[in-house]
Amino acid sequence: MKAFDYYRAESPADVIGTDARPIAGGTNLLDLMKHQVETPDRLADVNHVGLDGIERDGDGLRVGALVRNSDLAADPSVREGWPLLSRAILAGASGQIRNRATTGGNLMQRTRCYYFYDLDTPCNKRAPGSGCSAIGGVNRIHAILGASGDCIATYPGDMAVAMSALDAVVEVEGPNGRREIAATDFHRLPGDAPQRDNDLQPGEMILSVRLPAPLGGKHIYRKVRDRRSYAFALVSVAAVVVMDAGRMSTVRLAFGGVAHKPWRVPAAEALLQGQAPSPDLFDRAADAVLDGATGQGHNDFKIPLLRRTLNAVLAEATEGSK
């Protein structure tokens, strides 16, 4: 670990507009610093800035950036109105990690690409311009959608996938004031600048995540992985489906483990919305989701896996509804 300065921030103002890296639970950043994948000069400990409450916001909910994953998942109003979020969080990491990890920190979680962690191999995300070792290397866990010739890494988390499906909004503040970023747009595609995971600008800090009014309906988070707990998603499907008179009146879908960001395809949702459920329709929705999907060799299986999982989730979500 490279030597760094540390200070304890007492309020967001102590962080916003500075060049310090905020650290909260440290469940990812500390690992990255030990490996010297990240070498920040200055850390701002944000564990004491407040922002740790969950409060009503009209019909919605405002979740402070410092709310721990365990607390968010267990919150009665979250479980009642946004069970998808609760389920997604509980599908990730371990109890110990969830007790430390925070809402803002989890959004900042970086990829698990093997080569990103290995200083002795080229990686455009870690060392821009050095190349991508995962292309032509071991790429079982890598992206099938939205990848570029410079990077095929995935965003590995679960929480943000649910937030994307729920149309959550990330509230951030920078030296030029506050702004809102749709959770779906918070993470970016790698393009030719994979070193940038998300849209947060230098000097900006995440203050909270706003959940719009509950959608009702069935909430399903199905995470497919190599072991049943404490493993990242190979593929995950987050779905909210509201049935009305035998038709899907509301459909929200987001996918994890397949791209550099939680993957959301409005066209697939539009295809389903207002329609009666059928295997054929689900398959067409899967076609829309998988439009442009490309395997890298070891991860080819994710393409049929995503289709099958989506079909099963939609079947489960619409089962028994008239």
């Binding site: 093997y114 080569y115 866990i141 072991r227 707990s229 493993a231």
Partner: peptide, 14 residues
């Protein structure tokens, strides 16, 4: 490439 306990999977509780 998978030389840690996050990516080398030994059985976990579940």
């Amino acid at each position: 490439v998978n030389r840690d306990l996050a990516e080398y999977h030994v059985p976990a509780n579940l």
